[in-house]
Design a protein around this nucleic acid. Structure first.
Lengths: 249, 249
DNA sequence: GCTATCTAATTGCATATGCAAATGACAAGA
DNA sequence: TCTTGTCATTTGCATATGCAATTAGATAGC
C-alpha cells in the first residue's frame, strides 16, 4: 500500500522540482486517487523516491498544506484533508447544514424525478445537449416545517452513473453528490425573479413576490456533473460574505 | 529613503522569523506606509538589517508575493503591488468599470447629499450610532443612458475626513473611496426585494418588480469606513462567480 | 491493568552555500 | 545616434546540514 502511494508521485520535468511534486500530489488528491484521510508518505520517503532533497519536498508539502489539500502534524505525519464544506459566501453547498445552522429542523421531499434524455424545455433551461442522459429532480427543502428552498436539478448520468440507482431517500441530491462525486470547478449566478404560479404554492409566497435564484453548475475536469436552480423566498434569505482586499478572510 | 524603508521592517519575536518578516512587511503595505509602487529593499539588505539568512527573508517575500501584496522580478527587485480591482464574484466594486466592461457608456448623478449626524431612520437602515457624523449620499448610476443601479451610501467622516470636502463631481463616491481610503475588511449581503415607489421612478421598473439588493460595509482595522446599499433592477442583472472546492479559480 | 517514562519518527525552522536566470545599466563600437 | 555586448544586481531554485518541537508507540514500573 505504502509502495503504491509512493510510486504514484512522479516528476514530469516541467518547471521547478518543488512544483512538480506539488502538482503531482495535488492531482492525486483532486482526481480521487488519494481520498480524504489517506496518509501521504513522509518527507524522507518522498525524498528518496524522487531523488530530491528534503527541503524541496518540504516546500511542496508546506504549500499544499497552506492550500488546504493536506493536513500535517509532527510525528503523526501528513494526511489528505477533507474538502471544506463551505466556501465564503457560498455557504449554501449543503442545504441541511444551512438549515440546521439556523437551529431549525430539516426535512426534504422529492417532488418529481425523471431519468433519461432531456425534453427540449429542460435542455434549454439548463443548457444541455438533447442527447446526454440526465436525472431530473425537483426537491423541496423544509426548515422548521416551512418551505425553505425549491430545488430543480439535473445530474449528468454519464459523469455520475451511480446516481441512476440512487433513490435519495435519506439524503437530498445535493448532499449525496457532495459525498459521491468529485468536482473541480463550479459556477454560480445569483439573480432576482418574481415567484410564478408553481412557486406560490410550493414556497408559500404571494404571487410576484421577489425570490433569490441561485443557479449553480459544477464540472469535474471539464465534464459536467450537475446543474441546479435553487429558488429562495426573497424576504427570508440573504447571502452574506466577508472578504479583504487581497482575498477571503 | 532606502534607510527609512529598511528600518521600518522589524522583528517582534512572535513565532517563526520568516513569519515575523512577512507580517511586518504586510502591515506596512496594509496600513499605507508603503503605498503601491514602493520598492521593497532587496533580500540582501533585509538579511543584513534583520540578521536573518537570505533564505529566511526569501521565504517571507515569496509568500507575500503569492498572496498578491508584492510583485517580484529578477534584477528589477520587489515592489508593492496595487490592490486587485475586482475579486471573484465581487467584481462590482467599481460600477463605472462594471458598466464599461459591458460596452455601455457610463454616467452618474448625485441625487442628494447630506452631511452630519444621521437621522434615526438612517441610523437604523445602516446600523449606525446616532453620534457619529457621516456623509449620506444617494447616487444614480446610468448605463447607456438607462438607470443601472441606485446607490445609497454613508461614509464615516471620522475615518475618512477627506470625504467632507469632496464634491464627487468627476468620480462617484464608491470609486473615490477606492482611491482615497484604505480598507482591510468588507462584508456584503445579497437579497431580493420588491421595488418601492421611489425605485419605480428612479430605476424605471414596474411596481413590485424584483430587485437585487447588495449591501456592503467596509472597515479599516476595525473602524467603519463606509456602508452602501446598491439596488439593481432584478431582471437585468445577475452576479456570477466561479470557484473550486479549495478556493477561487 | 494502569500509569509514568522513554524513544524514535516526523514535521518545523533556520543557516550556509552555490549556481541559474533575468535584466537594468553602461560601455564599446559602428 | 543606434546597436550590440558585457557586467553586475537581484531573484529563483536546490542542496546539505543541524537542531527544535511534537507526539505515537513502546517500555518499564507499580
Amino acid at each position: 500500500m505504502t509502495e503504491t502511494r509512493l510510486d504514484a508521485v512522479k516528476l514530469d520535468g516541467a518547471g521547478p522540482v518543488y512544483d512538480q511534486i506539488r502538482r503531482s500530489i495535488r492531482d492525486l488528491v483532486l482526481d480521487g486517487s488519494w481520498p480524504p484521510g489517506t496518509s501521504v508518505p513522509p518527507e524522507h520517503a518522498l525524498m528518496e523516491q524522487l531523488g530530491a532533497s528534503r527541503m524541496t519536498v518540504h516546500r511542496a508539502l508546506v504549500q499544499l498544506a497552506r492550500e488546504g489539500l493536506i493536513t500535517r502534524r509532527r510525528r503523526s505525519g501528513t494526511i489528505v484533508a477533507s474538502p471544506p464544506a463551505s466556501h465564503a459566501m457560498l455557504d449554501i453547498l449543503s442545504i441541511p447544514d444551512e438549515v440546521r445552522r439556523l437551529g431549525q429542523s430539516y426535512a426534504f421531499e422529492i417532488l418529481s424525478r425523471r431519468d433519461g434524455k432531456p425534453s427540449a424545455e429542460l435542455a434549454a433551461l439548463f443548457e444541455l445537449k438533447r442527447t446526454e442522459p440526465v436525472a431530473h429532480l425537483v426537491t423541496l427543502h423544509r426548515s422548521g416545517g416551512q418551505p425553505h428552498v425549491l430545488e430543480e436539478r439535473v445530474i449528468h448520468l454519464a459523469t455520475v452513473p451511480a446516481a441512476a440507482g440512487e433513490r435519495f431517500e435519506d439524503t437530498p441530491p445535493g448532499d449525496w453528490l457532495l459525498k459521491n462525486s468529485l468536482w473541480s470547478e463550479a459556477e454560480h449566478a445569483i439573480s432576482a425573479i418574481a415567484a410564478g404560479p408553481r412557486e406560490v404554492e410550493l414556497l408559500a409566497v404571494t404571487r410576484g413576490e421577489p425570490c433569490l435564484l441561485v443557479e449553480r453548475r459544477t464540472w469535474n475536469q471539464g465534464k459536467p456533473v450537475t446543474a441546479a436552480r435553487l429558488l429562495y423566498p426573497g424576504g427570508r434569505h440573504r447571502f452574506v460574505g466577508r472578504f479583504g482586499p487581497y482575498g477571503a478572510v
